[in-house]
Amino acid sequence: MADLCVNLVPLFNALPQDEKMQIEKLVQHKNYQKGELAIEPMGSKNLVIVAQGSAKQYTLDEGGHENILQILHTGDYVGENWLFGQENINNYVETTEFSEICLLKRRDLVQLMHGQPELSIRLLELNMDKVSKMQTQIHLLTLPKVEDRLLEYLQAYADEIEKNSFALPLKMKDLALYLGTTPETLSRKFALLEKQGRLKRKVRQIKLFQN
């Protein structure tokens, strides 16, 4: 790919170009077919960067059903906790289309951070932000009605960007996974909320109305 994998990760944005190049030299580039695992439990402690394509991070319950944690698109990444020694007990990262994945190994990054302590601080800040977002998703999934999950998600996004009219940040299938439902059910709930006068939708364009 033309761009550096490290340029896709906000963690490395504050670093000068020569230091980014040092990190890029540590990165392994791999191509995965749809449905291949880039990470599985008790595997290597890697930072996983989606250079091109998409993937899903999930856990499995006792019945073997997937619990989606997040949908990863180009520029997204996962694995900060594993880089700092946390064991991956039940996390999978599986590509959902042909994808180029960049892998950065814990031992390589830790060695680099000994000489760049500001990198450790930045990583901690971003990790706290991701934990907060995952807690928000967990809260949404506790709501019994899908329409309540959807409306609360949309309102939170509107508050974040300070606009009541916006384009959906996720594709319908990805939003359905995020909210623990199906695209078909999600479409019905959009129609329900529109009928109730809570929003107006045209394809991916959304306008929220305050009650």
Rank of each mutant, 00 (worst) to 15 (best):
N90Q: 02
N90D: 11
N90K: 12
Y92K: 02
Y92P: 06
Y92L: 05
V93K: 01
V93T: 08
E94P: 03
T95P: 00
T95K: 06
T96Y: 05
T96E: 07
E97T: 08
E100F: 02
E100G: 05
E100P: 05
I101V: 10
C102G: 14
C102V: 03
L103K: 09
L104E: 10
L104M: 06
L104D: 00
K105M: 07
K105F: 03
R106G: 05
D108F: 01
L109M: 14
L112C: 11
M113Q: 15
M113E: 14
M113P: 14
G115E: 13
Q116A: 10
P117R: 07
E118W: 09
L119K: 07
L119T: 02
R122Y: 07
R122M: 12
L123G: 02
L124I: 11
L126V: 00
N127A: 15
M128D: 04
D129R: 02
S132D: 08
S132T: 10
K133L: 13
Q135L: 15
Q135Y: 14
T136M: 05
Q137N: 08
Q137K: 07
I138K: 12
H139Y: 06
L141A: 01
L141C: 03
P144G: 07
K145T: 02
K145E: 15
K145L: 14
E147C: 08
D148H: 11
L150G: 06
E152I: 07
E152W: 07
E152K: 01
L154Q: 01
Y157Q: 06
D159T: 00
D159I: 01
